[in-house]
Design a protein around this nucleic acid. Structure first.
Lengths: 221, 221
DNA sequence: GATATAATTTAGCTATACCTAAATATGGGT
DNA sequence: ACCCATATTTAGGTATAGCTAAATTATATC
């Protein structure tokens, strides 16, 4: 089965809206997300519902069914793979790639995206630090994740992503012995320049400046 | 200005049909190329004509105007760039990439395609041996080009393309001292196995088997 | 120069995907 | 239990992009 661009975009919007929080997305909210009108969403949702991709309880929101969720996740995967490719291989900046990825995500081919994934060595995060679903739709759980800059003192966290995936930043992290999965404890925070002092298993009292701590996404353990 | 997928496809079809031969493409021929119906082409051509992209003289064919030609060439450039990327970087076979490139060629961004071009080091030919237009629409003139396998004896030619751009084939050519622009003379052709003996400025009596001579595109000088 | 054959266009229909404006239905607060 | 502000749907319209079938038109042949 293959879906139109509008159908894919609608499913993606519902996914995004319902991601956090258990209640469905209202047609109004979906319309806002898609920069379209509620009446247009009504028609779209009706068709998606007939295809068994969403469950719609008027006034209680739209929810994705399992097949609907699979398709939405696939679109998100494609979007994030393309963003990663554009930034890491074509040297776009991370803030330039969204609209292009919005176009590329609708290219109809699993084979293409799986090969692109492989070409990039199965990246786990896109340039914005968002997790990339694998071909089965599984991705690193970001619930509760936040920038290291916002972690309270004496909290054990582990690194789950980076907001900046420039070679320069990744080289810096490498030099500090920090990578995905590294466990850290925040020892102190300095109000003066918003720097944080952290300790890892391998290194104590590592001082990280604000820029670094903002671009490291971590999750409490 | 931005054009719809159908408009771009129609312009591309007209380009392809009118490429060799000076008379315009009939609506019937365009319809066949697009796997659509003549009546649909009539409407499409009417709109393209209103936008100044084509010149239509009924019963005498449709011709591209200069702006129309620019857009058609751009679509061809994009198509061939993507085919090259898919084969050389994502390891697709050259016979698998057409339909994917048909989709990718409509991604609306000059910047993307210029960067893709740069990423691949400005390739001059796609995996099928067709020339890739540069960003100004210029490309190597293929009029009169043919496979080395079909060149008559004692003819001076130069290499203008390769049909197979696999690393293995390119490595072989490199090893034989053959590259784009190399001038060759065909000395002999052996009916036994369809091999050809050629001479270049640097090497005499080089025997090339049928597979190699079929995959080398040359042009008489 | 008439005319038949083939190319072309017109007319009218379908589907997607939007829109605005009007009508309708409902859940939460009183 | 009622009501109204708000969410939702319906009705009717637009544009793109196809289709079939019928009507028209021009070229080339006789």
């Amino acid at each position: 089965m293959t879906y139109t661009r509008s159908e894919e975009n609608c499913l993606k919007a519902i996914f995004t809206i319902t991601e956090q929080g258990e209640h469905g997305g209202s047609t109004t909210a979906i319309a806002a997300q898609l920069r379209t009108k509620a009446s247009s969403v009504t028609e779209m949702v009706k068709r998606l519902s007939e295809k068994g991709l969403v469950d719609h309880k008027p006034y209680h929101g739209v929810l994705l069914t399992e097949p609907g969720n699979r398709i939405a996740t696939r679109v998100i995967r494609r979007h994030r793979l393309w963003e990663t490719f554009l930034v890491n291989h074509l040297n776009f900046r991370w803030d330039e790639v969204h609209d292009l990825a919005e176009q590329l995500e609708h290219i109809d081919s699993d084979e293409l995206h799986d090969r692109l994934d492989k070409f990039m060595d199965h990246p786990k995060f896109d340039p914005h630090g968002d997790p990339i679903p694998d071909k089965d739709g599984r991705m690193i759980d970001m619930a509760g994740a936040l920038p290291l800059a916002e972690v309270p003192k004496d909290t054990l966290v582990h690194i789950v992503g980076v907001k900046d995936s420039s070679p320069a930043f990744l080289k810096l992290l490498d030099g500090l012995g920090l990578k995905l999965g590294t466990q850290l404890t925040v020892n102190r925070r300095f109000e003066y320049d918003n720097s944080v002092e952290v300790s890892s298993r391998f290194r104590n009292g590592l001082l990280l400046n604000e820029q670094v701590s903002r671009n490291l996404t971590v999750k409490p353990l």
